[in-house]
């Protein structure tokens, strides 16, 4: 594998549209659940161990070659909010386009044909990692880190939070990101024998409910 390829895929500037999404932070800020760096850390930690763990395991399983169709259905079942399912597919479509241009591969072409409206983003991320010559661990790390980095960046804009404080949150979460990625890879490795039921299903009720509330707003800074 190429360590530099991992940096390209994980780079926040990778043109896959992630910057337009706040990972639920916009709604949480408006509702007063995030008011500063301490709340942001708590928010990100909860997100990491729920949505982040699920995304990381989907990405790892896709990187291991589990069929995208199965993983996409598993992602649907783990995402009760229709607003979040739509956001995940939109991000998946954008990532498919960027990844195909960056790391041309038959598998990504097939994915684009099979899911013209986009597959769930973590599934695409796993296949993009595969196309880039990366492994399941890399894919899981990317997904787990993305599950918190987007919310942290968005909160800087939403609250005019000190960017150093937000980066400090991410640095403090780094050991937990590693643990979540490890757990995700372990679960993904069991999918071949046990099916997609082996994937974690950790849910965050307030994130799901908040996403629906957010989708009902007339004016939003972020798409989700």
């Amino acid at each position: 594998m190429s360590r530099a390829a991992l940096l390209v895929l994980a780079d926040g500037r990778f043109p896959a549209g992630g910057h337009a999404h706040s990972g639920g932070a916009e709604e949480a800020v408006k509702a007063g659940r995030i008011t500063g760096a301490a709340d942001l850390e708590d928010f990100c930690r909860g997100r990491l161990h729920t949505a982040g763990l699920v995304a990381a395991s989907l990405a790892a399983a896709a990187a291991l070659g589990v069929p995208a169709r199965e993983l996409d259905a598993a992602a649907d079942a783990r995402t009760p909010s229709p607003a979040l399912r739509a956001a995940a597919r939109k991000l998946g479509r954008q990532l498919t386009r960027a990844a195909r241009a960056t790391w041309p591969s038959d598998e990504l072409d097939a994915l684009a044909r099979e899911f013209p409206k986009g597959a769930h983003q973590p599934v695409v991320l796993g296949l993009a990692a595969r196309a880039a010559g990366l492994g399941a661990e890399d894919a899981a790390h990317c997904a787990a880190y993305e599950s918190v980095s987007g919310a942290a960046t968005a909160t800087v804009r939403l609250l005019s939070l000190d960017p150093f404080a937000a980066t400090g949150v991410l640095a403090r979460l780094a050991p937990e990101v590693d643990l979540v990625a490890d757990a995700a890879v372990e679960a993904a490795g069991r999918v071949r024998g046990e099916g997609c039921g082996a994937l974690p299903a950790a849910g965050a009720p307030v994130l799901e409910i908040g996403a629906e509330v957010h989708a009902g707003w007339a004016v939003r800074l972020f798409a989700s």
Binding site: G24, D39, D42, F43, R45, G46, T50, V206
Partner: peptide
């Protein structure tokens, strides 16, 4: 045969961090 819902909630002492925080139960 289609799985339409698969959700796990974990809370209390020993649950993964952030369960009581603003993303998961928000103190409820």
């Amino acid at each position: 045969g289609l799985c339409v819902l698969d959700q796990e909630v974990a809370c209390g002492p020993g649950a993964p961090g952030g369960w009581d925080g603003p993303a998961v139960l928000a103190g409820h």
